[in-house]
Protein backbone atom coordinates (compact mmCIF):
# COMPACT_ATOMS: atom_id res chain seq x y z
CA UNK A 1 0.00 0.00 0.00
CA UNK A 2 1.39 3.40 -0.87
CA UNK A 3 0.78 6.62 1.05
CA UNK A 4 -0.72 8.25 -2.01
CA UNK A 5 -3.99 10.07 -1.55
CA UNK A 6 -6.64 10.41 -4.23
CA UNK A 7 -9.45 12.74 -5.28
CA UNK A 8 -12.83 11.78 -6.74
CA UNK A 9 -11.60 13.36 -9.97
CA UNK A 10 -8.83 10.76 -10.13
CA UNK A 11 -5.86 12.94 -9.25
CA UNK A 12 -3.28 11.49 -6.88
CA UNK A 13 -1.22 13.36 -4.29
CA UNK A 14 2.00 12.26 -2.65
CA UNK A 15 2.94 14.49 0.29
CA UNK A 16 6.47 15.07 1.52
CA UNK A 17 6.58 17.76 4.21
CA UNK A 18 4.72 20.75 2.76
CA UNK A 19 5.28 19.68 -0.84
CA UNK A 20 2.62 17.66 -2.67
CA UNK A 21 3.40 15.90 -5.92
CA UNK A 22 0.30 15.60 -8.11
CA UNK A 23 -0.59 13.35 -11.02
CA UNK A 24 -3.52 11.41 -12.43
CA UNK A 25 -4.35 7.88 -11.36
CA UNK A 26 -3.77 4.70 -13.30
CA UNK A 27 -7.54 4.42 -13.68
CA UNK A 28 -7.66 7.95 -15.13
CA UNK A 29 -4.91 7.34 -17.68
CA UNK A 30 -6.55 4.08 -18.70
CA UNK A 31 -9.90 5.77 -19.21
CA UNK A 32 -8.32 8.63 -21.18
CA UNK A 33 -6.34 6.39 -23.49
CA UNK A 34 -3.18 7.51 -25.23
CA UNK A 35 -2.17 10.92 -23.90
CA UNK A 36 -0.81 13.17 -26.67
CA UNK A 37 -0.52 16.56 -24.94
CA UNK A 38 -0.32 17.97 -21.43
CA UNK A 39 -0.75 21.65 -20.61
CA UNK A 40 0.84 22.46 -17.25
CA UNK A 41 0.35 25.50 -15.02
CA UNK A 42 3.00 28.20 -14.71
CA UNK A 43 5.45 27.78 -11.86
CA UNK A 44 4.55 30.33 -9.19
CA UNK A 45 0.83 30.18 -9.90
CA UNK A 46 -1.37 30.06 -6.80
CA UNK A 47 -4.04 27.39 -7.15
CA UNK A 48 -7.17 27.02 -5.08
CA UNK A 49 -8.37 23.53 -4.26
CA UNK A 50 -10.47 22.13 -7.17
CA UNK A 51 -9.35 24.90 -9.52
CA UNK A 52 -8.44 23.94 -13.11
CA UNK A 53 -4.72 23.31 -12.94
CA UNK A 54 -3.73 21.41 -16.07
CA UNK A 55 -5.22 19.95 -19.23
CA UNK A 56 -4.54 16.45 -20.45
CA UNK A 57 -5.39 15.65 -24.05
CA UNK A 58 -5.84 12.10 -25.22
CA UNK A 59 -6.36 11.14 -28.83
CA UNK A 60 -10.08 11.33 -28.11
CA UNK A 61 -10.65 14.40 -25.94
CA UNK A 62 -9.35 17.08 -23.61
CA UNK A 63 -9.83 16.69 -19.85
CA UNK A 64 -9.18 19.06 -16.98
CA UNK A 65 -6.90 18.21 -14.12
CA UNK A 66 -7.96 19.95 -10.90
CA UNK A 67 -5.75 21.11 -8.07
CA UNK A 68 -6.31 18.55 -5.29
CA UNK A 69 -5.11 21.07 -2.70
CA UNK A 70 -4.67 24.82 -2.32
CA UNK A 71 -1.11 25.88 -2.88
CA UNK A 72 1.56 27.42 -5.05
CA UNK A 73 2.99 25.58 -8.05
CA UNK A 74 6.68 25.15 -7.26
CA UNK A 75 7.66 22.74 -10.04
CA UNK A 76 6.08 21.16 -13.13
CA UNK A 77 7.10 18.04 -15.04
CA UNK A 78 8.51 19.67 -18.17
CA UNK A 79 9.28 16.23 -19.59
CA UNK A 80 5.56 15.72 -20.25
CA UNK A 81 5.69 18.47 -22.86
CA UNK A 82 8.07 16.36 -24.93
CA UNK A 83 6.85 12.92 -23.91
CA UNK A 84 3.21 13.04 -22.79
CA UNK A 85 2.95 9.26 -23.16
CA UNK A 86 4.70 9.00 -19.77
CA UNK A 87 1.28 9.71 -18.25
CA UNK A 88 0.15 6.34 -19.62
CA UNK A 89 3.38 4.46 -19.13
CA UNK A 90 4.14 5.50 -15.55
CA UNK A 91 1.28 7.52 -14.03
CA UNK A 92 2.66 7.37 -10.46
CA UNK A 93 6.28 7.95 -11.46
CA UNK A 94 7.63 9.71 -14.54
CA UNK A 95 4.09 10.81 -15.44
CA UNK A 96 3.70 13.22 -12.49
CA UNK A 97 2.27 16.66 -13.37
CA UNK A 98 3.25 19.25 -10.77
CA UNK A 99 4.47 19.94 -7.24
CA UNK A 100 2.53 22.27 -4.95
CA UNK A 101 3.56 23.97 -1.71
CA UNK A 102 0.54 23.16 0.43
CA UNK A 103 -1.26 26.08 2.08
CA UNK A 104 -3.70 24.18 4.25
CA UNK A 105 -2.78 20.65 5.38
CA UNK A 106 -6.31 20.13 6.71
CA UNK A 107 -7.45 19.76 3.08
CA UNK A 108 -5.61 16.43 3.03
CA UNK A 109 -8.37 15.03 5.24
CA UNK A 110 -10.80 15.35 2.31
CA UNK A 111 -8.77 12.98 0.14
CA UNK A 112 -9.08 9.21 -0.05
CA UNK A 113 -6.32 6.78 0.82
CA UNK A 114 -5.50 3.96 -1.58
CA UNK A 115 -8.02 1.60 -0.05
CA UNK A 116 -10.72 4.26 -0.09
CA UNK A 117 -9.98 5.05 -3.72
CA UNK A 118 -10.18 1.38 -4.68
CA UNK A 119 -13.61 1.19 -3.07
CA UNK A 120 -14.59 4.41 -4.84
CA UNK A 121 -13.57 2.89 -8.19
CA UNK A 122 -15.42 -0.33 -7.42
CA UNK A 123 -18.58 1.72 -6.81
CA UNK A 124 -18.15 3.42 -10.19
CA UNK A 125 -18.31 0.13 -12.06
Amino acid sequence: MSDRLYTKDHEWVDVDGDIATVGISDHAQEQLGDVVFVELPAVGRALAQNEDAAVVESVKAASEVYAPLTGEVVEVNEMLTEDPAQVNADPYGAGWFMRLRIDDPSELDELMDEEGYKEFLADLE
Partner: peptide, 12 residues
Amino acid sequence: PVQYPVGILAEH
Protein backbone atom coordinates in the same frame (compact mmCIF):
# COMPACT_ATOMS: atom_id res chain seq x y z
CA PRO B 1 -15.57 -0.55 -30.06
CA VAL B 2 -13.79 2.79 -29.71
CA GLN B 3 -10.48 1.08 -28.98
CA TYR B 4 -8.91 -2.21 -27.98
CA PRO B 5 -6.39 -2.63 -25.14
CA VAL B 6 -3.40 -1.73 -27.33
CA GLY B 7 -4.77 1.82 -27.71
CA ILE B 8 -5.70 4.22 -30.48
CA LEU B 9 -2.17 5.35 -31.39
CA ALA B 10 -0.90 1.80 -31.85
CA GLU B 11 -4.03 0.84 -33.78
CA HIS B 12 -3.60 3.84 -36.05
